[in-house]
């Protein structure tokens, strides 16, 4: 969506909505927040709401980083150790590859 013609209060409102919605285990919204509002927050000349937008973008960025690390760690551990976990691994899996442990 093109933010050029959007008034500043609406921009702030959007950023805020995405930031708050991301707390519902939706890190992708934070990613969208960061990517979309990055230019607005850091690369545009200063305007009144920009400080607020900057905080929201920074916090979304932090949240995103947190999620990325958690998910990467879990996926690595699962892929590596699923075979060794036996029963637990099988109950946690959605599809199990055939023919290899």
């Amino acid at each position: 969506m093109n933010l050029e013609r959007v008034p500043n209060e609406e921009k702030l409102g959007l950023c805020r909505k995405y930031y708050l919605a991301g707390f519902a285990f939706l890190p992708f919204l934070w990613l969208v927040n960061v990517v979309w509002f990055f230019k607005e927050a850091f690369l545009k000349p200063v305007y009144t709401e920009q400080l607020q937008i900057q905080t929201y973008v920074k916090r979304s960025g932090l949240g995103l980083l947190f999620w990325v690390t958690v998910l990467t760690t879990w996926i690595t551990i699962f892929q590596h150790y699923r075979a060794e976990w036996g029963e637990v691994g099988d109950y946690l899996s959605f599809t199990i590859p055939l023919g290899i442990p």
């Binding site: 075979a83 099988d90 199990i96 055939l98």
Partner: peptide, 19 residues
């Protein structure tokens, strides 16, 4: 000659029931 079965009987029967 791809074989689906793997590891041992207990695992395989469990996966059979699980799927």
């Amino acid at each position: 000659s791809h074989m689906s079965a793997v590891t041992d009987t207990a695992t395989c029967m469990r996966r059979n029931d699980l799927n």
